[in-house]
Design a protein around this nucleic acid. Structure first.
Lengths: 231, 231
DNA sequence: GTCTATACAGAGATAGAC
DNA sequence: GTCTATCTCTGTATAGAC
């Protein structure tokens, strides 16, 4: 599985800032401080969820005092909201880029690979999302029922068309997408378990390559032995 | 998918109590109260994780005062520990029953079905576990590296033997197990998202039957169209 | 065995000096 | 813009009356 090229394992949020949003222009220092805070907050929120995370922890992780942090983000919820927004942008990008004009099998294969790369390179974002889901998505439900549903509906239609043309096997496109999400994000969200079960020898960095190989093969072929390849 | 027979959707913990553990015998009332507390605690812990959950919430959910609750479980951590223990027993049962003597394909198919039934019938247990994983399994890591690893090693060996005999396609047995866990538990842990994306028409009770059909088919056949079944 | 009252720490957030 | 001090509320846990 050569095309996994991304290096940095689980740091950095894209953290694009809209230049028109707040009335006041921001200094470079303000932006940098905010980014430090967001970075620290991602660590803490992704581990403990919204309610379990404390401003103290975030401040400590960010290397500043609690009041100082609150100078930049007056409310805990603001920090979380901003993280969620950035995270969703990053997180849904692979699905957005899923291309109806592409060649079906390679397109799906590449989607699986990209999702797995994201699990490897942005595990905190994955856990932030997972935490929100476990809590019933109180701060995200509108987006799930709106933007996300629309996007999935659109891609499901593409998959259905491919099935009609006999280019991929007929199956439920929604549950196919769910399965790709579930299997790839599992390697971020349940990372402790994966490493514990694989043990020292197999639980190292190579586990993502192994997973990639396995998942590609699973989604392509299932596990029923092919007559022509046996014996 | 007929064999999904379990009815009660997401209530009741087995809550077996070992009769030899605490020095003092327990009255019937004590047992009942403890069960009420554990039931309430499962609601709260599964939603908010250990740190996010509060004794106030649990007490309210259990319909008793906070001091009264603390009479039965002096520490928050005790409640959580007991829940985790019961949950793990329930949760790993299907894997324990995975039978080396059985017929490979039906055995795996049936394992998938049972895991999906558990996601449907014990979603809170699934979320309790998921919450613990997201936090890096601080209260569970020993079990993961011990009991669980041993159990998975054992079952992986069974799968490998089947592959050697050509009864199932050769693939990575560990990642196969991870994939079954991930896809089935997804329907408990990410339930909000599943229902949001499926919408009103398809997000109802039938979603589990749809998922079962899809997953069986995925694991058996993959998505590459079979030459003989196309056209 | 259950309640009221309360101790005491940690939480989010604000005031005001520098 | 950053800090110390502090307010208020919530949270875990205990004491002691009933």
């Amino acid at each position: 599985m050569p095309p996994i090229k991304v290096k940095n394992a689980g740091k950095s949020v894209p953290a694009r800032r809209k230049s028109a949003a707040p009335a006041k222009a921001q200094t470079r220092i303000q932006r940098e401080k905010q980014d430090v805070i967001l970075e620290a907050a991602l660590d803490v929120f992704s581990l403990h969820g919204f309610r379990g995370a404390t401003i103290d922890q975030i401040a400590e992780q960010a290397g500043m005092s609690k009041p100082n942090l609150l100078y930049y983000f007056p409310r805990k919820e603001e920090i979380h909201k901003r993280l969620m927004k950035t995270m969703l942008d990053t997180w849904l990008q692979p699905l957005r880029e899923f291309d109806a004009e592409g060649d079906p099998i390679p397109e799906i294969r590449s989607y699986i690979r990209r999702k797995l790369e994201m699990a490897r390179d942005f595990p905190r974002e994955s856990r932030l999302f997972a935490n929100e889901m476990l809590q019933g998505a109180p701060r995200l439900i509108d987006i799930l029922e709106g933007e996300l549903k629309d996007l999935v509906d659109e891609k499901a239609a593409v998959l259905l068309a491919w099935m009609d043309e006999g280019k991929i096997a007929r199956t439920d496109p929604y549950h196919l997408i769910f399965s790709i999400w579930a299997t790839t994000q599992h390697y971020a969200d349940f990372d402790v378990q994966v490493r514990a079960v694989l043990g020292k020898e197999r639980g190292g960095e190579g586990r993502f390559e192994d997973a990639a190989r396995f998942l590609e093969n699973l989604f392509m072929n299932g596990i029923v032995p092919k007559k022509q390849t046996v014996g």
